[in-house]
Amino acid sequence: TTSHRPSALEKAMMFSKIAARQLTARAFSAAAHQPPIKVHGIHARYANAAYVAASKQGLLDQVSGELESLLEATKKHPGLKHLLENPVISREEKSSALETLLSGAASPVTINLLTTMAGNNRLADYDKVVGVYEQLMKATRGEVEATIISADPLTKGQTDQISKAIESELGSAKKVILSTEVDESLIGGLQVQIGDKFLDLSVSSKIDALSRTPV
Rank of each mutant, 00 (worst) to 15 (best):
T2D: 13
S3T: 13
H4K: 03
H4F: 02
H4N: 02
R5G: 09
S7R: 13
S7H: 11
S7T: 15
L9I: 15
E10N: 08
K11P: 03
A12V: 12
M14N: 15
F15A: 12
K17N: 12
I18W: 06
A20S: 09
L23I: 14
T24E: 11
T24S: 10
A30E: 14
Q34Y: 07
I37K: 02
G41I: 08
I42C: 03
H43N: 13
A44P: 02
R45Y: 01
R45F: 01
N48R: 02
A50V: 10
V52T: 08
A53D: 13
A53N: 07
A54D: 09
G58M: 11
G58N: 10
G58F: 06
L59S: 06
L59N: 04
G65V: 11
E66M: 04
S69K: 03
S69M: 03
E72W: 05
A73M: 03
T74A: 00
T74L: 01
L80E: 00
H82N: 04
L84M: 11
N86V: 05
V88I: 13
I89M: 05
R91D: 06
E92M: 06
E93K: 11
K94I: 00
A97P: 01
A97C: 01
A97H: 00
E99G: 09
L101W: 02
L101V: 03
L102A: 09
L102T: 09
L102W: 11
G104I: 14
G104Q: 10
A105S: 14
A105L: 14
A105D: 08
V109T: 12
A118C: 05
A118P: 02
G119W: 13
G119L: 09
G119C: 09
G119D: 10
N120R: 14
N120H: 15
N121S: 10
R122D: 01
L123P: 06
D125Q: 07
K128H: 12
V129H: 03
V129F: 04
V130E: 05
V132S: 08
Q135E: 15
K138T: 01
A139Q: 03
T140C: 10
R141A: 09
G142F: 04
G142A: 07
V144H: 01
I148D: 03
I148K: 02
I149V: 07
P153D: 06
K156M: 15
K156V: 14
Q158K: 14
Q161T: 15
K164F: 14
I166R: 00
I166H: 00
S168F: 11
E169G: 13
G171I: 04
K175E: 04
L178R: 03
L178T: 07
S179M: 12
S179N: 12
T180M: 01
E181G: 05
E181A: 08
E184Q: 13
E184S: 10
I187F: 07
G189S: 06
G189P: 05
L190K: 06
V192A: 01
G195C: 08
K197R: 15
D200G: 06
V203S: 08
V203F: 13
V203L: 11
S204P: 07
K206V: 05
K206Y: 05
D208L: 05
L210N: 11
S211Q: 14
R212H: 10
T213K: 14
